[in-house]
Design a binder for these strands. Structure first.
Lengths: 228, 228
DNA sequence: CGACTCCTTGAGGTAATTCAACTTGTGTGG
DNA sequence: CCACACAAGTTGAATTACCTCAAGGAGTCG
C-alpha cells in the first residue's frame, strides 16, 4: 500500500523529512502504513530482530517487563519519533501503543540499506537517537531521585513541557498521557503513592486536577521547587 | 599535536575505525589528544555547547547533579565509547573521569562537518548511539526495580558482564568500577544500603568480596535470582 | 442498572533512610 | 618505621517513607 507521504502529518518533522521528494517516495515504497490500537503491542521483546518505524500519529510507550510481569516504562514516543533497535540482534524492550496510533513501518534490512544509500537519513537518525538518549537520561535522573514527591512533581512538570507548543514554557493546562499505574511504573513507585503525591501537590496549591487526567498548573514555581 | 592513530589502543573498535586510513588521518588532524585525571571533569553541564570525544583509555561517568549537589550517575563510558551531545545547544550532563583517562577530543562543528563528509562515520555513530540508548534503558530498568536487593544484585551482575571478555558470560572475578557512593548514586540508594546488600549477597553465598572493590562470583545463578 | 476499570483514601507493616560509631586501608610526615 | 590523619566502608539503632492490603468512590460501557 502506498504511504501517501504528501498527506503524512509528520512529513516535515520525521527523520525522512531530510530526503528529497523522490528519495522519500522511494523509501516509502519499502515501508508500509500500520495502525495499532490502544494497548496493542507493536514490537515484543525477544521477537524478530529487525524492524523499525516512525510514529505518525498517536503515542507509544517503550517498556520492559520483570520476571513477575511488573511493567517498567522506559520511554514515551511522540509523533515523528522513531522506534526500533536497528543494529541489535534481538529486540529487548516492548513497544506498546498508549492510544490508537499510526506508524510507518520498515523492515530492518530495508532501513539499513536506506541508511547506506542516503547519508542525510543516517545523520537525521543520529540526531534523533542522540535526542532520545538525552531524553532517556532525563527520565533516569527523574526516576533516580530518592523522594517520591520529587519524582511525581518532576514527572508532571515533564509532561507539562511535552504538552506545550513552546519548547521552554510548560503548558498551563494539559492531560496526563499515562494512567496512574503507568506513571507509577515509569518512576518506580506504586499507584497509591502516585495518587497520594498528586493530591498532596494539589493541596499544596501547585496543581489542580480536572477529572482523572486533566491537570492545571496553578504554581509552576512551586511544582519545580518540589522537584529537588 | 598529532593523535597517533597508529598507536591508538581503540583504533579498530572506535567509531573512527570505519574510515579509511587517509580519512582517519584527516579526521585526526581536527582533534586533539587529552588526558584527564581521576575525578577531573571533562564536560560540565551548561558549559560550551559543542565538543565530543572518543575515550581511548580509562573510564568515565556521565552524571547529573541535583539542586542540593546530589550526584546521579546516568551512564558509564568504556574505552572506544563516544561522549558528547552533538546537536544539543547546551551540555546537560557532566562527564567525569572515574580513573586517569585519555581521550580524542573534537570540536563540535569539526565533528559535524566530518559526519557530513564521511557517511560511514555517521552510520558508525548512529550504531554506537543506539547501543548507548539501549544501555541507558537497561540501567533505567535496573534502577527502577523496587527492591534494593534487586538493584544491587543487578548492578553487580552488569559489572561482571562488562568486565568479561566474552559478551555473554560474566567474569568470575573482577573489580567494581565504582565506589559505594557512586554505586548508590547510580541505582538510587544510599551508601549504607548498598553496603548492607553486598554483605547480604556475600552471606547468601552469591559473591565473595576481596578488599573494597574486588568481587568474586561464587554463584552467578543465585545472583541472577536476586535480580527479580 | 450492574459490572467493570480506574482512582482515591485509610491503616498497618516493612524496607530503606538517617544519624552515629567504629573499622579498615592509605598515604604523609615526623 | 611508626604515628597520625584522612578517606572509604561497615555495622547498629531509630525513624521515616513507601509499600501492602483493604475498602470505598467515580466514571464508562454494555
Amino acid at each position: 500500500m502506498s504511504l501517501g507521504c504528501a498527506a503524512c502529518p509528520v512529513r516535515d518533522r520525521a527523520a525522512c523529512s531530510v530526503l528529497a521528494e523522490d528519495e522519500r517516495d522511494a523509501l516509502a515504497r519499502l515501508g508500509r502504513l500500520r495502525t495499532v490500537r490502544r494497548g496493542e503491542t507493536l514490537f515484543s521483546a525477544g521477537s524478530d530482530p529487525a524492524a523499525c518505524a516512525t510514529l505518525t500519529s498517536g503515542a507509544l510507550k517503550i517498556a520492559s517487563y520483570g520476571a513477575d510481569g511488573a511493567e517498567h516504562i522506559l520511554a514515551l514516543v511522540h509523533p515523528a519519533g522513531f522506534v526500533g533497535e536497528l543494529f541489535q540482534p534481538f529486540v529487548h524492550h516492548d513497544v506498546v501503543a498508549l492510544v490508537d496510533s499510526t506508524l510507518c513501518v520498515f523492515a530492518g534490512p530495508d532501513m539499513a540499506a536506506a541508511i547506506e544509500h542516503y547519508p542525510a537519513l543516517a545523520r537525521a537518525l543520529l540526531r534523533r537517537t542522540q535526542e532520545d538518549l538525552h531524553a532517556s537520561r532525563s527520565i533516569q535522573a527523574l526516576a533516580g531521585r530518592n523522594s517520591g514527591r520529587a519524582r511525581v512533581a518532576g514527572m508532571v512538570l515533564a509532561f507539562a513541557q511535552a504538552a506545550s507548543d513552546s519548547p521552554c514554557h510548560p503548558a498551563p493546562r494539559f492531560d496526563l498521557p499515562l494512567s496512574r499505574g503507568e506513571m507509577a511504573n515509569m518512576v518506580g513507585l506504586t499507584i497509591e503513592t502516585v495518587s497520594r503525591q498528586l493530591t498532596a501537590l494539589e493541596r499544596a496549591g501547585a496543581i489542580a486536577r480536572d477529572g482523572k487526567r486533566g491537570i492545571e498548573l496553578l504554581d509552576p514555581a512551586l511544582l519545580a521547587a518540589a522537584c529537588d
